[in-house]
Design a protein around this nucleic acid. Structure first.
Lengths: 233, 233
DNA sequence: AGCGATGTGTGATCCCCATCACCGGCCGGT
DNA sequence: ACCGGCCGGTGATGGGGATCACACATCGCT
């Protein structure tokens, strides 16, 4: 799956962006121990229930985190961007990975072996704290995920929630009412726990009510409040 | 809510049971900083979305961990027994509690303030590791919870899964095919994400199929395999 | 005993959404 | 251009479970 190793100059350029909240000395130590490689779309970094080999850190690209039931149905937990470490909880507790990580687009990913992470954590208390806080963050995100899936058996509510969630990630953009739709209806369905067909139907309904407009792969949400009124309905 | 402080002798008797996997020196330090109190049934230790004040450690009794949606529906994440720390993730990441903790029976609970935990973690690397692993454990448990809720929209499958899960906790007991039913149907419904009525109906159905028998508050599960065959159906 | 609160059993109804089926569009390959 | 895969729309159908509406049991309380 790994196709190409990036050179050292590229590595250094990425340092501050990824480990910006860590002291430089520790960031350097991580760089030394990590192996950064490029992956094509659809590469599986690790799979649910595999024994943990180490942590993966997204340097560039987007990675899909999902869990799947025995019947083959899939739930996408979230899609992470650059800067996010994956598999940390599994490594520090010596368990198996709890989810499957798969690249959504060509990505550069650093890998840090089990033993190297633990060694560095023992060496640098700051790193141990950083790891702990990241796990706590993942825990919180997972709890919120549960809330969103449970508190509404209505699919339209969950879809509306997902859309406004996307808007919230967009505060940096020049067009705060637009979202790039990088997911298929099938994948959207896997994010809100419903079928592809209902996603199609719901989006069609939203368009009919002028809650959203679609041109190509960009969604325009003219009236955010109207969408939000569907939530907690 | 706190009604009574236990005396020092009781404290010492509890030490090894709760912190058995920690070095004695650290366990002692935790004892020094912690405040142990008794709570009646139904006391709320902390509520979802509250700012975190510190961690709670169950010394005796059982505590219900739940999250609730804006419409008032409730999902019980799990019921924890003695020895389990609660609210750790919220404290180390300085966030709000992600769930609500409520005593299910009269319980003794130790409380350790935010600042004291962080201070002790900085002092003892072992403690920091202990905390991290507990959070990772909670994360894994939450992921499994999601799996169980998602992979089956069928309520009977989820109920069957819950029952065999209870059997698994019972390996210590003299009667490995029996479970003490300490929850109401309503609460069971909140554990598997369905209504009280369907739980009643499902249990009635199970009885009719001789998958379970009930005498008073004890459930007998004569044929565990038959129940398991409902899962992944 | 009497009474409220709480937990449980069960019927009737209804609606949301999964599922099946099919079609049309778009794109990439040879 | 032809085809084969993926993606997206949309109708028809059916079922599982939520919800409403009762009746009954149990228990603690004064």
């Amino acid at each position: 799956m790994a196709t190409q190793t990036v050179n050292h100059a590229q590595k250094l350029a990425l340092v501050d962006k990824t480990f910006f909240d860590l002291p430089p000395a520790i960031a350097d130590a991580l760089e030394q121990a990590a192996l950064t490689t490029s992956y094509p779309t659809g590469a599986v970094l690790f799979a649910e229930a595999q024994a943990s080999r180490g942590v993966f850190i997204v340097r560039r690209g987007r990675v899909k985190l999902s869990i799947c039931g025995s019947d083959g149905r899939t739930l996408i937990l979230r899609i992470v961007n650059a800067g996010c470490p994956l598999g940390v909880a599994a490594v520090v507790s010596g368990r198996q990975y709890e989810a499957t990580a798969e690249t959504q687009e060509p990505s550069e990913i650093s890998f840090l072996r089990h033993s190297d992470l633990l060694r560095l954590m023992r060496l640098h208390g700051e790193l141990a704290l950083w790891v702990t806080q990241h796990i706590a963050q993942d825990y919180a995100a997972t709890c919120r995920e549960i809330r969103d899936l449970i508190l509404s058996d209505s699919a339209s509510e969950k879809l509306a929630r997902l859309l406004v969630g996307w808007l919230d990630q967009n505060t940096t953009s020049k067009y705060p009412t637009q979202v790039k739709l990088a997911l298929t209806h099938e994948e959207i369905g896997q994010m809100i726990g419903s079928s592809r067909e209902t996603v199609s139907r719901l989006l069609a309904g939203f368009k009919k009510q002028h809650l959203i407009q679609q041109s190509g792969s960009t969604l325009v949400i003219p009236d955010r409040l109207a969408l939000e009124s569907l939530i907690t309905a």
